[in-house]
């Protein structure tokens, strides 16, 4: 009888160990996440000049925005708006997919805010980023 309970405890301990090791890394190697990553990587070359000119900035909620339309020549403005829209769609999908890939859809907003901080932290000097109050500053 006691052996049976010991076995239950052993199984419990093993599952605890399994979950601890699962928590050490988030799953980011799913086909959906890889596809989003590739799509964003390709778009980045088109967006980079607008980060540099300050036309596009990084927001505090993990998105990007056309913050200074006047910095973009009129004929290009529509294209930039489309780029920004597509990028934001990919970013939202990325946060959602990471949450889902880890069986915690409710983590989406926390993943978004984690990313928001990291995008801003890794932004290059000269790019415009939003602070926690919503104000813009140049890195």
């Amino acid at each position: 009888m006691q052996l049976r309970f010991l076995r239950v405890i052993f199984i419990c301990l093993m599952s605890v160990a399994g979950m601890v090791s699962a928590a050490a890394d988030l799953e980011i190697n799913t086909p959906a996440i890889t596809a989003l990553k590739n799509s964003m990587q390709q778009r980045h070359n088109q967006l980079a000049p607008y980060y540099v000119s300050g036309a596009v900035g990084l927001t505090r909620d993990g998105q990007i925005v056309l913050r200074d339309a006047n910095a973009v020549p009129l004929p290009q403005r529509q294209a930039v708006n489309a780029l920004v829209g597509a990028e934001n769609q990919d970013r939202s999908a990325l946060y959602r997919e990471i949450a889902r890939a880890n069986q915690h859809p409710e983590w989406e907003s926390e993943i978004r805010s984690t990313f928001a901080g990291r995008w801003i932290e890794k932004a290059q000097p000269g790019w415009w980023v939003q602070d926690s109050q919503g104000g813009w500053k140049k890195k």
């Binding site: 928590a23 988030l26 980011i28 993943i111 990313f115 990291r118």
Partner: peptide
């Protein structure tokens, strides 16, 4: 873990 994943991506 989320920060690590974010940095990698």
């Amino acid at each position: 873990a989320a920060e690590k994943a974010a940095d990698k991506i």
